[in-house]
Design a protein around this nucleic acid. Structure first.
Lengths: 135, 135
DNA sequence: CTGCGACTTGAAGTACGGTTCAAGTCAAGA
DNA sequence: TCTTGACTTGAACCGTACTTCAAGTCGCAG
């Protein structure tokens, strides 16, 4: 143990991803294998960090293609930081939107209007979310 | 004009949704037509409110099936508010996660590490997001 | 009354992000 | 040595959310 590589099964177990997902990511250029142990892919241990980054970005709504663009960027890709800054701005909007939606849900969860969809406060809140979405 | 119903084309134009999307929503039980004008569906004007609600929920990551469950609930469905409160809690987690991700992106956009993925601060931030995701 | 154009239908297609399948291969343990 | 079990492959399939297609139908302007 304590080898300088991890078997795909090991990576799958530690990352919580299925081997099929790892192969899928490889096909998409998100990760690459170090080599093979027989037929089995082996990975450098730091692939786990990369997978954490990928999962985190996926969870935030980035597509595989977007993540690939971030990860395979040339070190001298001056556009990378710009794209990240742009993504941060997108997140600002998204977070604000979710905040409003959460407020609507919280009101809905406690208000006593029947039916809920007729609650004026709820309708107002939904209207605010919708108006912001349209922009 | 000023009729008590809207043609599907009118609804599509005002809601920003394609007629095909409206038919799709109808099939899924999200909306229903008032009647027909010839072959064409007609809707009550308040369908626009409902569509705003749907778009807003979709934007927040709710699936069609989830939205249906909220919209077709019996007025006396005591579980509705509970589900909404649960969704609000889900949103809490999601928002917190996006906040962390945004912080990572903001750091990334301004830090000068090359390559970025090796930046210790960035790695730390990604690790924090990943740790939170795992929960 | 005729033609245009926007709708109608069900079925098939698209994009995304994978999973599942059948058949085969390999390393390691008994 | 032989079996076992986890991997290998490409291809097919899945669910979500729609769009597009072909063929048909209708209201309305001219």
């Amino acid at each position: 143990m304590d080898e300088e590589w991890l078997d795909i099964g090991e990576v799958a177990a530690r990352s919580g991803l299925a081997p099929s997902a790892l192969r899928f990511y490889e096909k998409r250029g998100l990760i690459e294998a170090l080599g093979r142990n027989g037929l089995r892919r082996t990975y450098r241990p730091d692939v786990l960090e990369r997978l954490a980054l990928i999962s985190c970005a996926r969870g935030a709504g980035f597509t595989i293609a977007e993540i690939t663009r971030f990860l395979v960027a040339d070190p001298d890709d001056s556009g990378l930081r710009d794209r990240m800054a742009a993504k941060a701005l997108e997140l600002d909007l998204r977070i604000a939107q979710l905040d409003r939606l959460r407020a609507s849900l919280r009101h809905a969860a406690t208000c006593t209007h029947e039916p809920l969809v007729e609650c004026p406060e709820f309708k107002r809140a939904v209207g605010a979310v919708a108006a912001a979405t349209a922009l």
